[in-house]
Amino acid sequence: MSEVSLSREKLVDMYRKMWLARHHDVWVEDMKTKGQILGSMHLATGQEAVSVGACAPLNDDDYTMHTHREHQQLIAKGADIGRMAGDMLGKVTGCARGKGGHMLLFDKDVHALGACGIVGGGVPVAVGYAMAFKVLGTKQVSLAFFGDGAANEGSVHEAMNFAAVRKYPIIFLCENNRWGLTCPQHEQAAVEDLADRARGYGIPGVTVNGNDVLAVYEAVKLAVDRARAGDGPSMVECQTWRMRGMGFGDTMEYVPKEYLEEGSRQDPICLFEKKLVEKGILTVEEARAIEAETKKTIEDAYEAAKNAPNPDESVFWANVYAAEIC
C-alpha cells in the first residue's frame, strides 16, 4: 500500500467512512432482498477505497458529480445518511423529499450534486461547476465520478476536451471496476488503462490501484492541488473490482470466479485496516468498535427512514419550475 503522511484524525475518518459505505450497501442490499426498497439498485460493495480516497482531499464546498453506483461516493463526500435513507425509501425526509430514489441522490449541504442515472450524463454538468469556479474566481474544484462504461460515452469525451481547453478546475475520476453493464472492459475499450486517454485531451492522467485508499488519495490530492492552482483538469483512473452485479438481481454468471476471488483478496477495508494497525494508528479493538458503531449509524438511519412520513401531493407538484416565471 502507499505511504501517505496524514494526521491520525484524517486516517481514522477515512477508515470510518469506508465502513459506513460498506455497511450502507450491505444493509440496503438486504432491504432490497426483503422487498423493502423499490426500483433498481446498484451496489459498490468492495469499491469503498475509490469513493473515500477521492473525496478525502476535497472540502465541503468542492462539488462532486456522481454515478448511478453512487451511495458510497455520497457517504464519502459527507452526505447526511439520514436524509439519504429518506430518499432511498421515497420518504419526505430525503433531500429530494423522496422524488429521486436510489439513482438521483444528492446533498446540497456538502455539494454532492449529485448522482446521475444516465451513464456519463453528469460529467458535462460537472464541467459547468468548474466553469463557474473559474469565472467567479473561487478556489473550489469540481470532481466528476464516472465509470469505465461511461468513459466511452460521447458526453464524457466532449466534457474532458472542453474542460482541458478552458483549463477548468476539475478532476475526472474514473472508477474502473472493469465491467460496463454485463460486458468486460476489453469488449468496450481497446486500451487497458483508460487514463491513457488523458494524453489525447492534453491533460495529466494516472492509473492507480483503486483498492488502495491511500494511493487513490495521493493521486486525487495532486489533481486537486493542480486544479486549485489554476493548472486545469486531470484524470485519475482507479482500477477496482465490482463485487456485485450490474444491478440487483444480476446473477453474475458471466463474471469469472477468479475475478471475484482476487477482488475478495483485495478487500480495501481489510488492506487499509492492516496498514493502520501495523503503523500503530489504530488498535484492532478500535477498528472493531468503528465497525460496530458505523453499522449502528446505518441501521438507525434506515429505521428512522422506515418510520418517516411519505411525501404528500404538494411535493409532487413542487418545483417543476423552481422559480416564478412572470
Binding site: P124, L136, E158, F162
Partner: peptide, 16 residues
C-alpha cells in the same frame, strides 16, 4: 461539442 455545452451551462447555472 453540443452535449458538453448544454451540460456545462447547466452546471454553471447550478454553481452560481
Amino acid at each position: 461539442a453540443e452535449a458538453a455545452l448544454m451540460g456545462a451551462a447547466t452546471g454553471a447555472a447550478v454553481a452560481g
